[in-house]
Design a binder for these strands. Structure first.
Lengths: 264, 264
DNA sequence: TAGTGGTCTAGACCACGCT
DNA sequence: GCGTGGTCTAGACCACTAC
């Protein structure tokens, strides 16, 4: 019942992918949970038992369980075994940030029709979001995103100069800006999202083929790189019925908030 | 520079509230970060330095930092010091679940106008969400929620019998069902949220005073207790411009997903 | 190469849920 | 009272960043 014993040749052992032990344990437990090995709402083995089973320390087991906990797969409470919560639909960070990656993960064909790309002075809100000095410029891009040819979302992204220069040089038919940026060494590691409803403006209506004033689901997102520097400030507006956002949270970890009003 | 040395009398030491050491460290660091002690995008001291400073082990410091990490306050990367990310607006789990608690935290006066409360057989979707057997009954409640008297949201909550019986016995003018349930020993510890846009139906229009077909921000939520048993399945519909939801996530912890379509 | 966070271990004690 | 997860310690080694 031990972990896959790294059956690669004696070579550079552990040079595999998601190397960390606790990730392997987490992956194995996730598999067991989703295939129903512990039952619908069953109890997991004790941490000590799992540690022995996998041949690792209890600390490592706890690290693995923390992953499943934050994914909403299991509960945790002092005094009782952990309980299977549900088959949480997990999504990687990059599937969430990249429309292209997301579409492909569903087997759909993503498209991006460039509407405009300009370099211009940043306004006050943009300067604050991207942490730029007064007088700084930004690259502003408007694109219509499609799934299998059908309009789904209007994407308005503002990049700081360093990033925008890279995007501006991409061929107009490149679908995934995010992937291109990654290949140029721009990393996305943290994001703040705000979700609400807005009425379509004239441009939205023209691009999406809806009526002006009709409702759209809006996601605003500020993304930063590993050094904490903002690399993207985007506002996406979806046609109703095309997407929904879902979040899991708990007493222990609550990354979701509800806010009054709507500072634009 | 040590932690507040638990200056209570020798009595039952540590019987305070948020007792855990790492929580005190986290609270102290959060304070330092939000008051700008490390600068706008500054670097934190090394884990070892913090451990010495607080007189705790490195493991405890790491536990504290993990809290701030998941709140989106700091980054973390192998090889470099942690960086201050931003002043994340944090919200407690109960502020998120309870309209009443949320409203009061903003200094507004919450209201709840009961529209209907019925006991009836659960439909298929409700049975699945609340994990009930075929033929089971539920309590279904529709309420108009207000802030300072103004309509904000229509709340449609379905409770399993065990919980619904308690709610049904509450006086009609009780504002916070959540708080009452907590006092009856019903605990809310985990929740799954799905956020999207829908058109107002006739009932929504009547209660909210909007037109039929006008857009509403919808939050559907399934809440469970510490044993993993569903205790609530709610569908809240907000007037546009009254609220927004926000989430922080990162490569390390991603509790947010985007989904196609919209299974009702 | 020095410093940093990431991972892992082994052990200890405690608070809590149950029976 | 027993078993459980929660907290904390002390130490070790590694992978990565930055100089």
């Amino acid at each position: 019942m031990a972990l896959e014993p790294d059956q690669s040749a004696p070579g550079p052992a552990g040079t595999e992918r998601g190397a960390a032990l606790y990730r392997k344990v987490a992956a194995d437990l996730r598999e067991a949970i989703t295939t129903g090995a512990f039952g619908e709402a069953g109890r997991l083995p004790a941490e000590g038992a799992l540690a022995e089973q996998y041949g690792v320390s209890r600390g490592t087991v706890r690290q693995a369980l923390a992953v499943l906990r934050s994914d909403g797969l299991v509960t945790s409470r002092r005094g009782t075994r952990r309980v299977v919560l549900g088959n949480a639909r997990v999504q990687s960070f990059s599937e969430l940030l990249s429309f292209t990656h997301w579409a492909r993960s569903m087997g759909e064909e993503p498209g991006g029709i460039l509407d405009s790309l300009v370099r211009r002075p940043a306004d006050a809100a943009e300067r604050e979001q991207l942490r730029l000095e007064p007088g700084a410029e930004v690259y502003a891009i408007v694109r219509l995103r499609t799934l299998s040819g059908a309009p789904v979302m209007v994407e308005r992204t503002v990049y700081p100069p360093r990033v925008g220069e890279l995007v501006a040089e991409l061929p107009a038919d490149v679908v995934s800006h995010t992937e291109q940026l990654r290949e140029h060494g721009i990393l996305f590691t943290d994001a703040d999202h705000t979700i609400d409803v807005v009425a379509a403006n004239a441009e939205d209506a023209r691009l999406l083929g809806c009526r002006r004033g009709s409702p759209l689901l809006r996601e605003r997102r500020r993304t930063t790189d590993p050094t904490g520097t903002p690399v993207e400030w985007s506002q996406d507006r979806y046609l109703p019925g095309t997407v929904a956002f879902s979040v899991h949270n708990s007493l222990a970890t609550s990354a979701l908030s509800r806010h009054a009003r709507d500072s634009d």
